[in-house]
């Protein structure tokens, strides 16, 4: 019991929210491309580029928000490259996405070496990290309040963006046109809605969010850039997007699940469990989620059989 209490406490909740935020940000970006009918496997690379250039920008401008802006801009450049290949030149989206992911990995390493002369990571006192917010009213609400009242701003924004993205997708003309471009391009074109433009816009919006996610990684809790520091979060986001068909609310719950698994594995590490074993937790959760999703389909087959039998009986009578 005591062990459980030490694992499942307030700081696990706050850790969950913290680890959810980057996946959520990048996945929210992916909702736009998913709705626009593009399978965007390139989230990982956009995020990594965002993280790298955020650090660079932070040093250049000596401002955390300047870093965020430059990180976002860089990620959007990658996103635009992606959509030019996929939408304008009609290249295969998986091939282009993977190519850009590989490029992002290599480019950040090369530039690290070229600019800082180091390998692996950029650690410097010149990097200005994002400030922690202090929301007094929330902080006064006991220990939970303390944990929730002092995140970096991008974490709050990530959760606020769920609602913002939902409104954009389901309530604005832009969102409607993006959805139509993805679901029924022929309908869009017959009414003069430019599907290509919609897909470019969706991709750019995706880049914006992926850049924010990257900036959060490198300027949020730790202020450094490390080789491949996105470490698969972009792919987790892709998995969430497949389950959720790009619905922002379902995306939120999917990301919370991954965030929780991540946070849990971090907690378990401190208990001296084998770190190799512990690091499998997020993947086990993924498998579990997949299993549950397909398991839900099973009763449907059973239900159908029952329906058939009923039908036969009724028609016989």
């Amino acid at each position: 019991m005591e062990v459980l209490e030490t694992i499942f406490n307030v700081s696990l909740i706050s850790a969950t929210l913290r680890t959810t935020a980057p996946i959520l940000l990048v996945a929210l970006g992916g909702t736009f491309t998913t709705k626009a009918g593009i399978f965007n496997i390139g989230l990982e690379g956009q995020m990594l580029i965002g993280a790298f250039f955020a650090v660079l920008g932070s040093i250049w401008t000596q401002s955390a928000w300047g870093g965020v802006a430059i990180g976002v801009l860089a990620a959007m450049c990658v996103a635009l490259t992606f959509s030019i290949f996929v939408v304008t030149l009609r290249a295969n989206e998986v091939v282009v996405g993977l190519a850009l992911n590989i490029l992002a990995g290599g480019l950040t390493i090369t530039l690290t070496k070229a600019i800082f002369g180091t390998r692996g990571s950029i650690v410097s006192g010149d990097i200005v990290g994002l400030p922690r917010m202090h929301i007094p009213i929330v902080e006064d609400l006991g220990s939970l309040g303390k944990a929730l009242g002092s995140f970096t701003p991008l974490i709050y924004l990530a959760f606020i963006f769920v609602f913002v993205v939902w409104v954009i997708i389901y309530r604005t003309r832009l969102g409607l046109h993006i959805r139509v471009a993805g679901e029924k391009p022929a309908a869009a074109e017959s009414l003069g809605i430019p599907t290509g433009l919609m897909q470019h816009i969706a991709s750019l919006l995706c880049g914006l969010f992926a850049g924010l996610a990257g900036a959060h990684l490198s300027l949020g809790y730790i202020t450094m850039f490390a080789e491949n520091m996105s470490s698969g979060r972009g792919f987790m986001a892709v998995a969430v997007l497949i389950f959720s068909i790009g619905d922002p609310v379902k995306v939120l719950f999917g990301c919370l699940l991954f965030g929780f698994a991540d946070a849990l594995s971090l907690r378990l590490q401190t208990f001296g469990l084998s770190s190799y074993l512990v690091l499998t937790v997020p993947y086990l959760v993924t498998l579990g989620a997949l299993f549950l999703l397909t398991y839900r389909q099973r009763p449907k087959t059973l239900r159908e059989t029952a329906e058939s039998l009923q039908l036969i009986r009724r028609e016989k009578a």
């Binding site: 409607l176 959805r179 139509v180």
Partner: peptide, 8 residues
């Protein structure tokens, strides 16, 4: 061939 969006 109708050009309608099924989910709308």
């Amino acid at each position: 061939h109708f050009k309608l969006v099924p989910s709308l």
